[in-house]
């Protein structure tokens, strides 16, 4: 049976959007001259409404909003992906270790996981990015280090489920040790779930990045969608009704996050067996 047939239409649409977004993020830096985004060198007037020349208008410094949105895709996607990989990586490791091995270590890991699971991740991320030097790395760390517990919880549950299955008991009875059980039985069954989780984690990481940037905690040297909205708020886009400065970056976030979510849910439907 073709696995793709289980993939929903919404999932396909999401995947298509992601391909486009990735292409934009990769190609944009090659096509946009640095001058067009340099506050000191732009020539256009600030707060221009959309028109023939700047078809999404200009921001408070006179830079083209359209170019900013295109340029911002790279930052948002990069942070989203790396933070998600970091977070899911930590979560998977903690989950498998605390699920497979019993004893004190597992107990302590579980306690720590549960503790961080209930803490508001954004508050921790804010605290981390406040104390660490500003930069892309800080944002990735702040998001990745605070969002792993849900993955750990899920991977642990899956590990426990698999280890309770008779085929693992059979493997042990055959003489298989920890490495054999984890490598041959636990990991292969955890991988699909981890994949789904990574996709969904990218979505929430992008939202988290935009929130941190909006609060002024982003990398001040880089353009991201959240940072654009930070500028919009700071320079009064709302009272000026500069909808062209407010809508595009926000919509970009919504569309990309929704796309990741749809792909994640479609993957989930494929990997979880139907009853």
């Amino acid at each position: 049976m073709n696995r793709l047939t289980g993939f929903s239409r919404a999932g396909m649409a999401g995947a298509a959007i992601l391909v486009v977004a990735a292409l934009v993020a990769l190609i944009a830096p090659l096509l946009i001259s640095a001058d067009a985004l340099d506050v000191t060198r732009v020539t256009a007037a600030p707060w221009q409404t959309p028109g023939a020349q700047h078809w999404l208008g200009t921001d408070h410094t006179g830079r083209s909003v359209a170019l900013l949105v295109v340029q911002g895709a790279g930052t948002s996607l990069f942070v989203g992906l790396t933070a998600a990989v970091l977070s899911v990586g930590i979560g998977t490791l903690v989950g498998i270790v605390s699920g497979h091995f019993g004893g004190l270590v597992a107990g302590a890991l579980l306690r720590v996981t549960d503790f961080f699971l209930v803490l508001p991740a954004l508050v921790l991320a804010i605290a981390l990015s406040t104390v660490l030097p500003r930069g892309l790395g800080t944002i990735v760390l702040a998001i990745g280090l605070t969002s792993w517990p849900s993955t750990a919880r899920m991977v642990r549950a899956q590990t426990l489920t698999i280890e309770a299955r008779p085929f693992v008991e059979r493997a042990r009875a055959l003489g298989g040790g920890h490495g054999h059980v984890i490598g041959r039985h636990v990991l292969p069954s955890v991988v699909p779930l981890v994949l789904v989780n990574t996709t969904l984690a990218v979505a929430s990481s992008i939202v988290a990045e935009s929130t941190l940037a909006f609060l002024g905690l982003g990398d001040p040297t880089r353009i991201s969608w959240g940072a654009m909205l930070h500028q919009a708020q700071l320079h009064g886009a709302v009272p000026q009704r500069a909808w062209w400065f407010l809508l595009p970056p926000g919509l970009a976030i919504v569309v990309v996050v929704l796309a990741f979510t749809l792909v994640g849910r479609a993957l989930e439907a494929v990997v979880t067996p139907k009853r």
């Binding site: 008779p166 085929f167 059979r170 009875a173 055959l174 039985h185």
Partner: peptide, 29 residues
Amino acid sequence: VQLVLQDPASALNPRHKVLDAVAEGLRVH
């Protein structure tokens, strides 16, 4: 000493082919 379990459907890893399931013991040892 080898074990044979009650429910063969769950005593076999659903992802492993018959060859791998039977060879598991050979590979472990």
